[in-house]
Design a protein around this nucleic acid. Structure first.
Lengths: 207, 207
DNA sequence: TATTTGCGTCAATGATACTGACCCATCATG
DNA sequence: CATGATGGGTCAGTATCATTGACGCAAATA
């Protein structure tokens, strides 16, 4: 056995040991680890993010997000589209008349990347652009009937997934889910989300 | 104005109208929409997934997942790596000695895709492979000290994000978040997640 | 011995994203 | 009205992450 392989076996052993410790921690069999600091006890344990808790969050986000998008991805693939097309359908559907610039800001991609996705969608009749009335340089984006139909198909597919998850988890869990997801978002994304939810058009978001 | 543009303006108007309806729905100003079916009232409203609720879920997952990964992505980019490398570090770190086949099953990618990411990581000393003791065809994967260090850096960055979100949302919300995310996962992913959490090695997952 | 399994690798392809540069039409300002 | 700034489109080149299909090799197994 090479020296490298011997080292590797030591590595593997160390990893197994770490996992054993984490499992013990999860089982709550180590009261000494809690309540450090002496503040009010309630909530402390959950607020102190133990290693295994974050690892679980990572796993949940990875698998959960993937399966959330899987159904829509399958429909899109049949049409020769990808997730990027869905995002355009989603946000243009959510805010008809959105400008190209605002869509770019929401998606956080470059003009070029958007163009590669958007141009074919316009040519194939999913989206139309009309010049802005006030500012004729703008190209206001709106879904056509066809675009709305496709968006609806994708939406319905995802609805099944989310509905099942919500039903299984219960109403209280849904509120918690929303709070945590919002918390994961940075300030810019929160602002964008607020403007998507509240304002008549995204352009009024005070800039 | 062309006929196409006129049509587009009708589209835009229709979209605005739809948004107005959704907003009214969200405000709960339509009591007639609730309690359909006559069963027990509690929870019914939440179990019937209204349009706007799912749209919000879509937005939250899109922005939340993106910002969750953003910090780690930045570190990885400096090292010339991508998210795929992080996934390898994460799952190999979580299950030292995992086989290539099991890692493929978790990631749901092809051998080729994994190879393109894994081979450089082995050459650069982040991961080692050692032949299995029982089955010498297997290449058991383990992080090196260097790999563990990088994984730790990425982990710590994400911990800040998740810790802030958990703290902001509160302990109850965390439990709800977990339940919903687990609900989004399909049966295969749930099985994998269970085996990652519980079993000593993923190979014992009864196949 | 023959077959299957675990893994690595070849070639070709596609989707999504990037940077940097440049152009055009339009708006706003001096 | 000339000038500069803005909204948008486009070109060329590059990178990452993924795919399918085929083939090879070593080791396990029937």
């Amino acid at each position: 056995m090479s020296a490298e392989q011997e080292a590797a076996q030591r590595e593997a052993k160390a990893g197994t040991e770490a996992r054993r410790r984490a499992a013990a921690d999860k089982a709550g069999s180590d009261p000494g680890a809690h309540d450090k600091g002496g503040g009010p006890t309630a909530g402390r344990n959950l607020l102190f993010l133990r290693e295994e808790e974050l690892r679980l969050a990572q796993d949940l986000l990875f698998f959960g997000y993937r399966d959330f998008t899987a159904g829509a991805d399958a429909i899109l693939a049949e049409l020769g589209m990808g997730r990027a097309h869905h995002r355009v359908l989603h946000f243009v559907g959510r805010r008809p008349g959105i400008t190209v610039g605002d869509l770019l800001a929401i998606l956080s991609i470059t003009k070029q990347s958007l163009g590669r996705v958007l141009q074919p969608m316009i040519e194939e009749g999913y989206v139309v652009q009309i010049a802005g009335a006030a500012d004729r340089r703008q190209r206001l984006l709106t879904l056509t009937e066809r675009g709305r139909d496709l968006e609806r198909r994708l939406f319905d597919r995802q609805r099944e997934t989310v509905m099942a998850a919500y039903r299984e988890a219960g109403p209280g869990a849904v509120e918690g889910f929303r709070r945590v997801m919002r918390g994961l978002m940075g300030p810019e994304a929160r602002g964008l989300l607020r403007s998507i939810e509240d304002e008549p058009t995204i352009r009024e978001r005070g800039r």
